[in-house]
Simulated assay, not measured.
Amino acid sequence: METARQHPRPDGHAMRLRTSDGVDIAATHEPASSWSTELAVVVAHGFTHRGTSDAVRRVVDVLRRRAGVVTLDLRGHGESGGASTIGDLEVHDVEAAVQWARQAGYARVATLGFSLGGAVVVRHAGTFRDVDAVAAVSAPSRWYYRGTKPTKRLHRALGWPLGPAVLERFYGTRVARRHWDVRHPETWCPEPRAVVGAIAPVPLLVVHGDSDPYFPLDHAHDLADAAGEPVELWVEQGYAHAENAAPPQLLERISGWISTAVGVPCQG
């Protein structure tokens, strides 16, 4: 991990983080509009996205009104090294960002993840237990789900011999294919619903749309039902999936929830 600074730079900057399992991760820190070091939010993007995606930038713009923001390219995505394990080893990527924020002087650190990133922040918080609040949006509760047309297409693509090459060529996403192979259960890791209970008593927010084309509402209910208190479940009418579909009003509400959950007064 990069050398920590005692105070975050006010102008924001790109950086490289080194995970505990040796992967080089691209990340960016942007301070709160007020330059406050009360709260940092680590944002984990969805599959095939990256920290600089337009949809992620919209999230950052809202969060920065109240908090410093650390975005990262999860392994196998964008400018980061390694290969995507679709929710397993990515917990180390989030942990590197959390530890950077702590060492940079932030008093409280929360995580916010979308889709794949939502599963990652749940697993991260249930494993490392070193954050002050967690928000998971459009997150799957279990692995190898194929109950919708988009998830069936994704599994077919990853099972196709040229599928990983196509993902890398057109999306810049490199996949550790063995993690997606149901014939190799030794690569499986605990599902989000299996570890979500360990997050308590850290506040958890689960957000899911009733029009999600990837993961139906039972995924959100699985997570909320298995979580300990305090947990909130927001079912959003007409909301589809992840950061691409998140309206500004929802992002503002999530930002406000995070501030309230960690005890930082909302200022806008």
Score class of each variant (00 low, 15 high):
Glu2Tyr: 07
Glu2Asn: 10
Thr3Gln: 12
Gln6His: 13
Gln6Phe: 09
Thr19Gln: 00
Ser20Lys: 15
Ser20Phe: 11
Asp24Ser: 15
His29Tyr: 15
Ala32Lys: 07
Ser33Ala: 14
Trp35Tyr: 09
Ser36Lys: 11
Ala40Pro: 09
Val42Asp: 00
Phe47Ala: 12
Phe47Asp: 00
Thr48Asp: 05
His49Leu: 11
Thr52Trp: 04
Thr52Leu: 01
Val60Trp: 00
Leu63Ala: 01
Arg65Gly: 12
Thr71Trp: 00
Asp73Met: 03
Asp73His: 03
Gly76Thr: 14
Gly78Asn: 12
Glu79Leu: 10
Val98Gln: 00
Val98Ser: 02
Trp100Phe: 10
Ala104Glu: 01
Gly105Arg: 04
Arg108Phe: 06
Thr111Ala: 00
Phe114Lys: 02
Leu116Ile: 13
Gly118Asn: 09
Ala119Asp: 01
Ala119Ile: 05
Val122Glu: 00
Thr127Ser: 11
Phe128Val: 10
Asp130Met: 04
Val131Arg: 01
Val134His: 00
Ala136Trp: 02
Ser141Cys: 08
Ser141Phe: 02
Arg142Thr: 14
Arg146Asp: 10
Thr148Ile: 14
Thr151Lys: 07
Lys152Gln: 15
Arg153Ile: 12
Leu154Phe: 15
Arg156Leu: 12
Leu158Met: 15
Leu158Asp: 06
Trp160Val: 12
Gly163Val: 13
Gly163Arg: 12
Glu168Met: 10
Tyr171Ile: 07
Thr173Phe: 02
Thr173Pro: 03
Arg174Pro: 10
Ala176Cys: 07
Arg177Ile: 15
Arg178Phe: 08
His179Ala: 06
Asp181Glu: 05
Asp181Asn: 15
Asp181Phe: 04
Val182Gly: 03
Val182Arg: 13
Pro185Leu: 00
Thr187Val: 10
Cys189Lys: 14
Cys189Glu: 09
Cys189Met: 06
Pro192His: 09
Arg193Cys: 05
Ala200Glu: 08
Val202Ile: 13
Pro203Ala: 04
Leu205Asp: 04
Gly209Cys: 04
Tyr214Lys: 11
Tyr214Gly: 04
Leu217Ile: 13
Asp218Leu: 04
Ala220Gln: 13
Asp222Gly: 06
Asp222Asn: 11
Leu223Met: 13
Ala227His: 04
Gly228His: 14
Glu229Gly: 06
Glu229Asn: 09
Pro230Trp: 03
Glu232Pro: 08
Trp234Ile: 10
Glu236Pro: 10
Gln237His: 15
Gln237Lys: 14
Tyr239Cys: 03
Ala242Met: 02
Ala246Val: 04
Pro247Thr: 05
Leu250Lys: 14
Leu250Glu: 08
Val264His: 01
